[in-house]
Simulated assay, not measured.
Amino acid sequence: MTAGTDPDDAFLEPLLRRCAVEPDFSVREMLTWALTRLSHQSVLDRVVAELDSPVDQARSQALHTLSKLRDERAWPAITSEHLHDANDEVARTAWRTAVGLIPDPERGALADELKLEFGRGDIDVQRSLARAFVELGDVGEKAAQASLLAADTAVRMHAAATIRLIDDPEATFYLDPGDA
């Protein structure tokens, strides 16, 4: 609390180190809040560097912090490797952060990149990806529609569930075997 209430850039490194290892989600949220209260450029530069960490949680928290900073200059640092990270939490956070930071002209390319993830993971991972497509709007719907023709049954079911969510963002996300 003190690090965010009385911001001091000297807290930057200790906060980032703790984000990488803190097991409690609520504590990580407080650490992220404290980071957003520090000098914006210093935090941005250092958090972007953290995206290359070999520690999954460090990458995930760096992406999460970027989503809170809402600085489009961070967009180029979100790579295909982040969007397709083997760790589900890193990938989910990358999807959410990417759709929040992407410049309008690149939205279609992001949708095409994200459609490669259809069929991935459990229901929570799939719901996260569907929410990213909802945020992408028309280009997200177009990419999801194209995925209805995929050879893989899981991809088609996920794409159909995503389209339902795009049509009604308040609806419950569900996979329907009949969509396959």
Rank of each mutant, 00 (worst) to 15 (best):
A3N: 01
A3W: 03
D6G: 04
D6P: 02
P7C: 13
D8C: 06
D8K: 03
A10M: 08
L12F: 00
E13K: 11
P14S: 05
P14W: 06
L15R: 03
L16F: 05
R18L: 14
R18C: 05
C19K: 09
A20N: 09
V21A: 07
F25M: 13
V27M: 02
V27P: 02
R28Q: 12
R28I: 10
E29F: 06
L31E: 04
T32C: 03
L35G: 02
L35K: 05
T36H: 01
R37T: 13
H40A: 12
Q41S: 12
Q41R: 15
S42H: 12
L44K: 10
D45Q: 11
D45N: 10
R46L: 06
R46D: 10
V48E: 02
V48W: 03
A49I: 09
A49F: 08
E50Q: 15
D52K: 10
D52M: 09
S53M: 12
Q61V: 08
A62D: 07
L63C: 05
L63G: 00
L63I: 08
S67I: 09
L69A: 03
L69T: 04
R70V: 13
D71R: 14
E72R: 15
R73D: 14
A74M: 09
W75E: 10
P76V: 11
A77K: 07
E81N: 14
L83M: 03
H84Y: 05
A86S: 15
E89V: 09
E89C: 06
V90N: 00
T93Y: 01
W95P: 00
R96V: 10
R96E: 13
T97W: 03
T97L: 00
A98H: 06
L101Q: 08
L101T: 01
P103E: 14
E106N: 12
R107F: 11
G108I: 11
G108T: 14
G108N: 12
A109Y: 10
A111L: 10
A111N: 07
D112V: 13
E113Q: 15
L114A: 05
L116K: 11
L116F: 04
E117G: 01
E117F: 02
G121V: 08
D122A: 05
D124I: 14
S128L: 08
A130Q: 03
F133E: 03
F133Q: 04
V134L: 05
G137N: 06
G137E: 04
V139F: 14
G140T: 08
E141S: 05
K142G: 01
A144R: 09
Q145D: 08
L148C: 10
L148T: 13
L149H: 14
L149T: 15
A150T: 11
A150G: 07
T153S: 12
T153Q: 14
R156E: 11
M157I: 13
A159N: 09
A159I: 13
A160P: 08
A160S: 14
A160Q: 13
A161H: 00
A161R: 00
A161I: 09
T162E: 04
T162C: 00
R164T: 01
R164M: 04
L165F: 00
T172D: 04
T172Y: 04
T172Q: 12
F173E: 01
F173R: 05
Y174W: 13
L175Y: 07
A180C: 09
A180E: 14
